[in-house]
Design a protein around this nucleic acid. Sequence first.
DNA 1: CTCCGTTTTTGTATTAATTACAATTTTGTA
DNA 2: TACAAAATTGTAATTAATACAAAAACGGAG
Lengths: 159, 159
Amino acid sequence: MKTAENTEKEAAALLKDKKVRPSMIRVKVLKYLLDNRNHPTADRLFSALENEIPTLSRTSIYNTLKTFLDEGIVSEITIEDGNSRYDAFTGKHGHFICEKCGSVCDFDVKCATCAPESLKGYKINQEHVYLRGLCPNCIKSGGDGNEKNFRKKRCKKSS
Amino acid sequence: MKTAENTEKEAAALLKDKKVRPSMIRVKVLKYLLDNRNHPTADRLFSALENEIPTLSRTSIYNTLKTFLDEGIVSEITIEDGNSRYDAFTGKHGHFICEKCGSVCDFDVKCATCAPESLKGYKINQEHVYLRGLCPNCIKSGGDGNEKNFRKKRCKKSS
DNA sequence: CTCCGTTTTTGTATTAATTACAATTTTGTA
DNA sequence: TACAAAATTGTAATTAATACAAAAACGGAG
Ligand SMILES: [Mn+2]
Ligand SMILES: [Mn+2]
Ligand SMILES: [Zn+2]
Ligand SMILES: [Zn+2]
């Protein structure tokens, strides 16, 4: 089975592999992302780790994520405006966001969108497929999914 | 041919169709989006229209866009974090953003991503396909597309 | 181990997009 | 024309993200 120690070592190894010094913060951030495929925001990462690392600062989270992005260790999910989320799972997949509860989950993208011929001459670095809608939980708990205005609200906490 | 007056009428008709009162601001915003398929930000819309409507306020742009979103008249493109863009072209298509110059262009999405079976029980309202990379212009003008750190900068003006 | 330059982390201030909200203006209609 | 409803505006507030410089931790040479 996969123990906590295991993912910690896995994270450290992954970082060394990419020539990123495996500092405590970096390892813990990457471990969190490997253990929790919940596509956290920077703020959620901070909240999740501030107990474990009492001196942690938000700036460190942003610095760490920027390093990871530059090295291709994580990808940024901009499915929601003004709240970037991060993903360390590198396999090709799409993201679904529930417009009511804000949770983001993965799904398989079957047919590649593949570079269309109308983009000849363009260099394509990343491909993202995003779906928006309602998750089963939110469908159950009222709301037929046709309400207007279930748009993003400005709220610090989001899952 | 399509005259300026024509798109103005077209915009007004589209609004009436959706039971949205075709006020001057609403018509001009929608007309701009129909005439210019450049996926403007709220700020770009404001800049484009403030001459024509000297009393215009940014809040009105935001209000207008919110109304349009609620009525499904435009869609929001969150391809870039912290800078929503808007699109009045409702046909199914994907968006490419150049990571260097920030321009956004359309492309045809051939094969539908279509609701995957792993999302049974989910209600899907929207589908977005985003590509990121370099446009031909930016490839020409130096930069092989493999630089690190050509990520978003905080800058008011972006095309 | 100690010294010293490099890297990482932190704290604070700043930027900028978006929202909240109340006041004002405009509009449609009786 | 008169009045209620809707649209527009201005200002203040919120908040994610960045800039930047100071402090701390690290790591190799001697
Ligand atoms: Mn994912
Ligand atoms: Mn488009
Ligand atoms: Zn939900
Ligand atoms: Zn470009």
